[in-house]
Design a protein around this nucleic acid. Structure first.
Lengths: 232, 232
DNA sequence: CCGGTCCCTTGATGTTTATCAATTCCGGCT
DNA sequence: AGCCGGAATTGATAAACATCAAGGGACCGG
């Protein structure tokens, strides 16, 4: 693996506080690969052989059961995924595929577990990361159980606007069918739900969204930091 | 706090591997309290002052938004709750109330964080616990997004039967209205859904469930370890 | 033993969301 | 420019689920 990437990865919260010798151990077994869009990276149920670190691009975590499929989350750089499966040495609960061209570092799970056992700093960093992941799933579950599909959509758009830096207009970043799956609805229903938000100041043209009147949309969405703030 | 309880708590995975001096530190600031049923223990949004350890009884974790409320999970002994909020020193995402008379140990969050910073064994134990919690929420989310309400109910009953030791007949352990909330449906709908499972070998009388033909119920439920196995 | 309360059930109805079947729209290719 | 294929939309219909209103049954205190 090139040294410049070492530096990028070392800069992640997860690897920042660990002993240098341990970091070098991890990097010796690791490698980086670039994947084209729409490539399956791993399948739920598989043994968790590698911790994945997304360096650039984006990845969709999804899951299937009984012929149905749903998007669980989107991974954005720079962050890890399937950390919990790696720690517990258990099969993945979700499948992953690239959304766009992506650079991903793969670190053998066995080495992660070995270093984790001897490096307290690394263990603490993993705790912090896992606690954040846990809380973000809890938020997603509250979103699902407490809100209707329009409310979920409205709040999603508000969060997307924040991610985009608060611009009135911003790009969705992927297909609407995926957004529908993330929201737990069908593409047809999303289409109608978006139309339903027009009177609340939302204009959708293709994958470009414009929020003409954020206050009006917030009056409908009623965003709440205990559900919608991704940083806590 | 009585010494016998020290022993019980020390036996938890979470506290098993830490240094004795650190454990004593934690216990000095801790105290145990017995609560009657239906008592609010904490409210979402509150600062996370104490890590809670449920010694006996059971606790409901729930959440509210915009006038609606939903049950997120049931805590059973012996385990901790609101660990992630404690670690991150952030407000609780869920509220908690006792379901039955419960003994709960309260350990100041600040001390948990302090010991966690200096005791690698404790940090590792927390990682294992958090990874388990994370995976259980992911499973719950898959359950919600991939299954209809009848399928969720059927799989819930199969898991409840396993928890009860595989007996044909077993107790639900709480009101049906709470089960409805856990499943994300209304009590009325649960009532009809239960009736709909009669042809599949389910008999419900009050809070007592009898599964006459597990194979038949499984044919409908299609349980999957990546959703329904709580141990992984 | 009575009345009250709270939960559960049942029925009737309404809303939300999914499904199915056409189009229409759009980007990439030739 | 013209064609192609996948995505998005639209309309019609059905299924899933919620709401409202009214009983019924268990528990509990007087």
């Amino acid at each position: 693996m090139p040294d410049s990437l070492h530096h990028d990865i070392r800069g992640l919260h997860l690897f920042e506080t660990m002993a240098d010798a341990h970091f070098q151990t991890l990097m010796r077994g690791a490698f980086v690969q670039t994947f084209p869009p729409q490539i399956d990276l791993l399948t739920e149920g598989d043994p968790s052989d590698f911790l994945h670190v997304l360096v650039s691009g984006s990845v969709d975590l999804f899951s299937a059961w009984n012929g149905r499929e749903t998007s669980m989350a989107t991974v954005r750089p720079v962050s890890t995924f399937i950390l919990a499966a790696t720690i517990r040495d258990q099969p993945y609960l979700m499948s992953a595929r690239t959304l766009e061209k992506s650079r991903i570092a793969l670190i053998p799970s066995a080495e992660i577990r070995a270093v984790f056992d001897v490096d307290g700093g690394f263990a603490r960093a993993i705790v912090t990361e896992l606690a954040l992941c846990y809380r973000s799933v809890i938020k997603a579950q509250k979103d699902l159980k407490l809100r209707t599909s329009s409310e979920r959509l409205a709040n999603y758009l508000l969060r997307a606007q924040d991610r985009a830096g608060g611009q009135d207009g911003f790009e969705l970043g992927f297909e609407k069918r995926r957004l529908a799956s993330v929201l737990g609805i069908t593409p047809e229903h999303l289409s109608r739900a978006l139309k339903g938000l027009q009177p609340h100041g939302v204009l959708a043209t293709g994958t470009r969204i414009r929020i003409a009147d954020r206050d009006r949309l917030e009056a409908l969405a009623r965003p709440n930091p205990l559900i919608d703030d991704p940083s806590t």
